[in-house]
Design a protein around this nucleic acid. Structure first.
Lengths: 210, 210
DNA sequence: ACCTGAACACCGTTCAAGT
DNA sequence: ACCTGAACACCGTTCAAGT
């Protein structure tokens, strides 16, 4: 039921997910939905939790760097698949069960790696800020993955006025060069964060497979 | 005119900003707005650009670390003031003039600090991912800045089931301790990123005030 | 150039009622 | 328990018309 809601938003964006469109998708009348959910907001909470549940959980007994990296990469992929969910996260304040399970697994992984409680907070806040923020930026790219060159060139032409020399430089010398992919910045940022976490681990726990 | 739109969203959230509410605020009939903007989407683009314009610009000829730090801190404050704007950013793909000026200033600051073109992209993507993602997390906190203790305790009680031991540990031993403030995590993350940027600067440019 | 009333095709949701 | 039709107070936007 919530899965259908996700499918609708995937296909037509968040604004296409209405009580009426969801009801139609389920072959039922709009008012029937109110027997299962008190408000549309409740449905949105469920939808966000469902999306969260798609993210691979890290294993606390694995190599922490591998696990944290895998989970972050999975989170990015999920948020790219359901980019409408990012906007939703800003307004949801009551985490669902999948979200809680997820946080529990992450905390377990970080604590098992030997991080102190304060450092666990630092690392988790930094990591998820990066993942969410990257997803926002990726979803707001002025070109989609396919039509990159044409649009990029149009933008670069706009910069030829000389008003934005640094933007022009970056567009022409970097973005328009073959092989450039904004998505690659994810690996860089993730590496920086993982390195910082690694440095924070007490020597006694370092590279301990436990 | 767009300022009034921002004020409406500040006061009542994004859903309270409608063509009708904006018209009323301006003492005009709804249809008059269409003489200045083709669609509501165009208004939203303008609103996002206005919010962007509130962020302090970094000075390319200042100390890069001071400037980048000041700008990131300002961005966080702005997005906290207008947290509804975060959700909007996800769907806007055409940057306005204030946004372009902003990016130009950031690129200029990073390049003037001696960063290579690829490293400039790495640093900027990492920095803004962090800033945006932090803003999302901060706006989705289950407690607002004032009523922290009561709500936190209610949440901690929920964890007493033993189903989420790591979450319980973190809530009880960290979040509920006096002096804890999620907002403090911003300084930590920003420090990690600035340190990474600093390490990337060629020795010849290091600490050059130029 | 600037503004507007009426209307249309939508929303989420209430309420009272059906099986 | 599960579903529904009619209705209400909203949306964004079109169109034709006013000054």
């Amino acid at each position: 039921m919530l899965k259908r809601a996700v499918a609708i938003a995937d296909a037509g964006g968040l604004e296409s997910l209405t009580m009426r469109s969801l009801a139609k998708e389920l072959g039922v009348r709009p008012m029937s939905l109110y027997h299962y959910f008190a408000t549309k907001d409740e449905i949105l909470n469920g939808v966000v939790d469902l999306v969260f549940g798609e993210i691979e959980l890290p294993a606390a007994d694995g190599d922490w760097r591998t696990e944290v990296s895998r989970r972050a990469t999975s989170a990015r992929a999920v948020l790219r698949r359901h980019s409408w969910a990012i906007a939703l996260m800003e307004s949801r304040t009551t985490p669902g069960p999948a979200t809680l399970r997820h946080h529990e697994a992450m905390l377990d992984t970080l604590r098992s790696a030997g991080l102190s409680l304060p450092m666990t907070g630092h690392a988790y806040a930094l990591l998820d800020s990066f993942v969410y923020g990257f997803a926002i930026q990726e979803s707001a790219l002025p070109f989609d993955r396919d039509s990159a060159p044409e649009v990029t060139q149009a933008i670069a032409a706009q910069f030829s006025s000389g008003e934005y020399p640094r933007l022009r430089e970056y567009a022409v010398e970097r973005v328009m060069k073959p092989g450039y992919d904004f998505g690659d910045e994810f690996a860089y940022g993730l590496g920086v964060i993982l390195d910082d976490i690694e440095r924070s681990i007490p020597a006694s726990d370092r590279s301990a497979e436990r």
